[in-house]
């Protein structure tokens, strides 16, 4: 994006909303900020309508702070809690239908490649676990099989939270949720393993508890998707509302899961992607 585009014409400074002015003066466009810089710049997400203590909201903030190229990033979302926050994000965002996010992202990325052959346009899918692993799984996987240059990020709160806490494919076995009144009958779906088998060049599992690691992984996933192939990140983002814990216990929940071995930070990278990242590091020196 040409930065002149969002500059305010002289004389209009006073009538533009304060958050817009903040974005222009202290926003992250073209600045190469990361998680470490949070608190020093105007974030892309302006407030949000999600619940207090929402793990997903925290993950979103960290994702947005880690975009390597926010001025040329388009985020494709899906129906769910995160869709409620995206209209308040200062990068372009598409919310089309429930589950079609990777299909929309495919068309978008291919069309942007046609229109801007010499420019980087990152297409990042950010959707919930229901959208990714249940209703949209065929389109998620086919975008991987087709080697689309897109990043897929799942905000995994282990339930359909926006509709009132129903079981999803990512809920843990035996979890008692709506539509699973006697407990879930099958294990949490191993989507990271599926992603590896389906051809993702980079796959990661992380949570906002490991904020810096999350930031680095988001960055890796987007950079690799540009050049090498599809990437997948799964961010465990607990839901206080539907899992019925206090809003200040979100981090503790993740810690508990780390402790009992049901959540672990994992990273998988193909040799080709690894070489590519090493090349970038080399270039920096």
């Amino acid at each position: 994006m040409n930065k002149n585009l969002f500059k305010i014409s002289p004389g209009y400074e006073e009538i533009m909303p304060a958050e817009y002015l903040d974005l222009i003066n202290d926003g992250p466009y073209g600045k190469n900020y990361g998680v470490d810089d949070l608190g020093t710049f105007k974030e892309l997400l302006e407030e949000h309508p999600l619940c207090a203590g929402c793990g997903l909201a925290l993950s979103m903030r960290l994702i947005l702070a880690s975009l390597p190229n926010p001025e040329d990033t388009i985020i494709v979302g899906s129906t769910g809690c995160s869709a409620l926050a995206f209209p308040q994000v200062a990068v372009q965002n598409i919310h089309s239908l429930f589950g079609n996010q990777n299909a929309v992202a495919t068309g978008l990325k291919r069309a942007l490649k046609l229109r801007f052959p010499d420019k980087i346009k990152d297409v990042v899918v950010v959707a919930g676990d229901g959208a990714t692993v249940d209703i949209g799984l065929d389109m998620v996987m086919h975008s991987w099989f087709r080697k689309e240059n897109i990043t897929t990020i799942m905000l995994d709160n282990e339930a359909y939270a926006n509709t009132g806490g129903q079981e999803s494919g990512m809920s843990q076995e035996k979890a008692v949720l709506n539509m699973a009144p006697t407990g879930k009958k099958f294990p949490k779906i191993a989507l990271p393993e599926v992603a590896q088998a389906a051809g993702c060049a980079y796959v990661g599992e992380v949570s906002p508890l490991q904020a810096k690691r999350l930031g680095k992984m988001v960055r890796n996933a987007i950079l690799i998707a540009r050049e090498i192939g599809p990437t997948y990140l799964q961010l465990y983002s607990p839901c206080p509302t539907n899992y019925k814990f206090k809003s200040n216990e979100t981090m503790q929940k993740i810690k508990d899961r780390v402790k009992d071995g049901t959540f672990k930070v994992k990273e998988y990278i193909t040799p080709e992607a690894e070489q590519f990242l090493a090349g970038i590091e080399e270039g920096k020196k």
Partner: peptide, 24 residues
């Protein structure tokens, strides 16, 4: 300029959404 077979009619009709939104 660009052509591919999608994975289902639902997916195709969503893939064209993305492409059209990108301005082609």
């Amino acid at each position: 300029k660009e052509y591919f077979r999608g994975e289902s009619e639902f997916a195709v009709m969503s893939e064209v959404i993305g492409a059209a939104m990108a301005g082609v």
